[in-house]
Amino acid sequence: MTFMSRVLLITGSILLAHACYSAQEVSALLNTNDSPISSINSAETSDSTPYPSLSGTSTRSLSNLPLDVIIETLVSVALLCLGIVLGSEPLKPISWRVWAAKVEREKDLKKDVVTGTEDGYLWLENGRRKGFIDIRQHRQDFANWVRTQDQ
C-alpha cells in the first residue's frame, strides 16, 4: 500500500505542477493578446464597482482556460487525495469488543521498554499489579525460567 500511495502522490504532484504551469502560461498568453481590450474593460467598470479589474480578469481567464487544463487539475487533486488516504496509518478500532480482542491478542507480544504500555485492564490481573509486586517471588520465578531455558 505504501508503494502504491507513493506512486500516486508523485504522479499527482507532477500533474498538479504541470496544470499550474499551463494555467499560468495560458493567462500570460491571453493578457498579451487582448491587453488593450481588457484594459478598456477594466477602465469602464472601475467607476461602478470597487474591485473591477480583479473580478473582470478572474472571470475572463477562468472561462478562457482550456478544458484539458481544468481536467488535469481535477485529476491531479483526486490522485493526491487517494494517495494520502492509502498511505495513512491503519485505523484504530473504535468498537470496544474489537479493541479488547486486539489488546488480548497482543498482550504477550514483545514490547519496547520505552514505549510499551499496558493497554486495557491487563494491569489488574495476577502478577501484573504494580503496587503489589512480589519482587522476591518474581526473582525466583525468573531464575527457574532461566534454568529451564538452559536445559
Partner: peptide, 12 residues
Amino acid sequence: MTSSQSSHQFAQ
C-alpha cells in the same frame, strides 16, 4: 504468581 507469568513475560 508462578502460573500467572508466562514465558513471554520472562523473555520480555
